[in-house]
Design a protein around this nucleic acid. Structure first.
Lengths: 365, 365
DNA sequence: CTGAAAGCGCTAACAA
DNA sequence: TTGTTAGCGCTTTCAG
């Protein structure tokens, strides 16, 4: 008998809607609506009555109904490529946090790099009438953007198709960090640097690789194309790519990776081959996921702040939903920088560690 | 001029609703509704016309409206403790996949172990009128469950409060895997086994620890309480706990951890201390996150299938939403098992590796 | 400043 | 089998 405080003895739990509040507060439902939406012109007396009723009834407005009439779902789409890559959860967390702080909910879509899934995701987002979408897939088919454009849904994404002169771009300055990385390696004496990229059909992977190549050139190092391997941005991809490199007659002395997971895969391949980091190979990752600090040895990597990314994305979206006074049309930039930890050192066979047994395969050039 | 194909020349993009479809198909809106909801009694001729119109108009139903009238949001809540722990993304992925496959969307909430955040999460879920909630936080305040009960929202969770004799329990058989782990260690010759638990205010952490203790006893090994450390289920927690153990006068020869992240933290602490796994310490994790295979050396751990977990959770929820014929009221069980990789070996100072320099601290007992 | 009333897009009786 | 109609819970004119 203690379970219902309002429902008297009808066994149904007495649904509380705006009308219940109105009648308890002895006002019209319009006034209730205005009150809870903080319309300033409500008589404080009535407002007080309304709030009291709201509290007593433990009322909260039905989001569906609100969304229906207002046309706004207060839902933000977040499309990521692969939730299993730790970079994304970190991003999602920030994203969720920022969204909730602004009274939005997030709808998560994970594409797993499959265009079909991506297609489905977009559709889900549109069906749910998200108010905006952040596309964090590091590469998206152009035509999918059109879809959102057509539905007039604001979106942000990383690494624009050059054909998109929109204000919805989160430009990542890959070069800054990668340049630091290459310099770092060069200073240590490395001249033979390999690069394991992400899948090259993705723009971000291309950008990173291009940045690497360009930085190499700026540094006066010649690229060896045998050491430019296409990975998958996954552990397995990194491991396989490194195995591939180890099967080559010539080895580089350092490896840069397009993301941290790849680098961890590389560490694994090296471990399998009984090779040591950094004495046999120097290694640099990209992203600076939380885990990078905890690999053995801790991974030198290039940090891209996902907190930044998330916040800027939300900011961008929200500012377009509720356009403020100044219409900032500029693309936002996310920067990157080197975090030096312990996977980088002098090249093997260098004076500094001649006492060490060199790697099993002789280095020839 | 090429941008609108349907909107003629009114600049608004011509919203497509059920009425547009109805008139194009020359039927009533009710027929459209029935058709798209696959009500079997629709004349195939009309249905065909409807589908044609749907396609031509590229119509899709407004979820909000549907939800409003039907009272079902087709949203499933998923509350996790910490999205940053790789176990959860793996779970989320499975969960999302399963949900979408059934036409549901998921609403993600991350509590970060803070009751206040948890409170907020529940509220968000209720406000959005989720049709069901999976609480994967490994420990939840009882009163929060009441909230869902009161709103008549089905929920599932792990490791019940004993006071909840509901059919909404996903019981995890921690003991199975942990027993295998302890046995494995015992067979190798370990008698001095430490355990780094999760936060003991969480039920799952308690369960795992209890299971460990009980398995130790079954195996005839005496527990040393100095080696029972409370961690945090995070990298840092594991590292700190291991540092703590290393500061002790007596060391165990093997460590079991309440989750993989903790174990990775332990590996890190050992690396710092220049101690080797498994020659100086054997190490076993728990969860078998994807990454475990890629630590150096690869982590021996106890697998709890999150795919299983996700699927069973969804299954449970859905079966309660659309009750089938047979009303299975039984709690589902998730089992666990040992995955032996390379972080376990003979105890140090054992015949098998006497040639190795022993750990710096002498083992005394 | 407040209330009455008209929908938002859809589903579900109910009639035909 | 189909169409008509009454809402779902809320916001928002529009009078008062």
């Amino acid at each position: 008998m203690k379970r219902s405080r309002k429902a008297a003895d009808t066994s149904t739990p007495a649904k509380i809607d705006i009308r219940s509040v109105a009648s308890l507060a002895r006002v019209s439902i319009a006034t209730v609506s205005r009150t809870i939406n903080h319309v300033p012109t409500v008589d404080p007396i009535l407002a007080a009555r309304v709030w009291k009723a709201v509290r007593e009834l433990n009322y909260f407005p039905n989001t569906q109904a609100r969304a229906l009439v207002s046309g706004k779902s207060r839902l933000l789409g977040l499309i990521v490529s692969e939730i299993t890559n730790p970079f994304f959860p970190e991003l999602i967390q920030e994203f969720e946090h920022a969204a909730v702080a602004h009274g939005y909910e997030i709808l998560l879509g994970s594409t797993n790099y499959e265009p079909k899934t991506m297609e489905l995701c977009s559709r889900r987002m549109i069906e749910r009438m998200v108010d905006g979408v952040a596309i964090m897939t590091f590469g998206i088919e152009d035509f999918l953007l059109d879809r959102f454009t057509a539905d007039n849904i604001p979106f942000v994404f990383i690494d624009p198709a050059p054909s998109r002169p929109l204000n919805s771009v989160l430009a990542v300055d890959y070069r800054a960090g990668i340049y630091e990385g290459v310099q770092h390696l060069a200073v240590l004496g490395h001249r033979d640097i390999g690069f394991i990229s992400g899948p090259l059909n993705r723009r971000s992977a291309q950008s990173r690789k291009a940045a690497f190549l360009s930085c190499l050139e700026s540094t006066g190092i010649k690229a060896n194309h045998d050491w430019l391997i296409e990975g998958t941005h996954t552990l397995d991809g990194g491991r396989d790519a490194m195995r591939h490199i180890l099967a080559l007659p010539n080895w580089p002395t350092a490896i840069m990776c397009s993301n941290d997971m790849t680098a961890i895969g590389v560490q694994h391949a090296l471990f399998e081959a009984n090779l040591k980091v950094p004495s046999d190979f120097s290694l640099i990752g990209f992203d600076d996921i939380h885990l990078a600090e905890y690999t053995i040895p801790p991974l030198t990597t290039i940090r891209m702040s996902c907190k930044d990314l998330a916040n800027k994305a939300i900011e961008n979206l929200l500012s377009r939903l509720n356009p403020p006074e100044g219409q900032g049309e500029d693309a936002t930039t996310i920067t990157t920088r080197l975090i030096a930890r312990q996977t980088t050192g002098f090249p093997r066979n260098t004076l500094q560690d001649l006492k060490q047994t060199p790697a099993r395969k002789p280095q020839s050039r």
